[in-house]
Design a protein around this nucleic acid. Structure first.
Length: 250
DNA sequence: AAAACCTCCAACCGCCAAGCG
DNA sequence: TCGCTTGGCGGTTGGAGGTTT
């Protein structure tokens, strides 16, 4: 990535100049976000649509917070990552003023190295005992409405989700969310399905929509409530650091 | 003072899903 | 149904600037 280099199509790459920033900012203030493919044509910017979009989202957009992450922001990030994994855009949508790129960069530079180091030390100290997850069954079409008797509980050692749909056979449970069982493909698949389901509008009172930032916040308020009621997040930062979901990454 | 090394983060890349004709 | 376009995302890169030797 050399500054002011260009690709085969003659599009400029590398760092943005103040003039380019102004062109992009002026355009979006006039026409709004979206229609990224029109921006180079209308502004004369010699940049691809992706580059324009990224520059706006990560740098030019108003209310973007700069500088170090505050302790509460890091805390929130860790908790959300515990639930969502590397879904940086969802995590960022929950941390005001921070972009997905910010969150991802912070995680990769500050948290990941530390957690890996701790994990290595842990492995040296004691052998890891693999915990087999409880068998679970779950339908992709399972109704996750509030009428379900869904319980999220913590037992101190590990964090458990359990649920029972009294009317049907859709019983499932996940044990030790924050433990090494996350290596297990079945559990990972389950979590993927779980969150995929939650991203859809679910029959009932909860509207899970991760499309817009405000909606994301609303969706995750449910998680906050469960935290308050059930102590789902009753674990310390150090515990989280020992059990990151970075194991999900290939 | 300067070379080597390290850290941070802006930007790029490739992939995927949705929308549309 | 298929192929194309577009928007969006996560992973990765590499240059700039800071720190250490």
């Amino acid at each position: 990535m050399t500054p002011s280099s260009s690709n085969g199509l003659g599009l400029k790459k590398g760092a943005w100049s103040a003039h380019e920033d102004k062109l992009l900012k002026d355009y979006i203030e006039q026409y709004g976000e979206g229609k990224w493919h029109l921006i180079p044509r209308r502004t004369g910017l010699n940049r691809c649509r992706k580059s324009c979009r990224l520059r706006w989202l990560n740098y030019l957009r108003p209310n973007i917070k700069r500088g170090d992450f505050a302790e509460d922001e890091v805390d929130l990030m860790l908790r959300l990552h515990q639930i969502l994994g590397n879904r940086w855009s969802l995590i960022a949508g929950r941390i005001p003023g921070r972009t997905a790129n910010d969150v991802k960069n912070y995680w990769n530079t500050h948290i990941q190295p530390r957690s890996k180091q701790q994990k290595t030390e842990l492995l040296q100290d004691a052998p890891v005992t693999s915990i087999n997850p409880q068998p679970h069954t779950m339908s992709k079409t399972q109704n996750l409405s509030t009428s379900d008797k869904t319980q999220i509980v913590s037992n101190g050692g590990g964090n458990f989700i359990s649920s029972s749909n009294e009317g049907g056979n859709n019983n499932f449970n996940v044990s030790s969310l924050s433990s090494n069982v996350l290596h297990d493909d079945k559990i990972k698949k389950y979590l993927d399905e779980l969150f995929d389901d939650r991203e859809m509008e679910i029959e009932g009172d909860i509207e899970w929509s991760f499309g817009e930032s405000s909606a994301q916040a609303e969706a995750l308020d449910v998680v906050d409530q469960e935290e308050e009621n059930n102590g789902f997040f009753d674990f310390s930062l150090d515990e989280i650091m020992l059990n990151p979901m970075d194991s999900q990454q290939p």
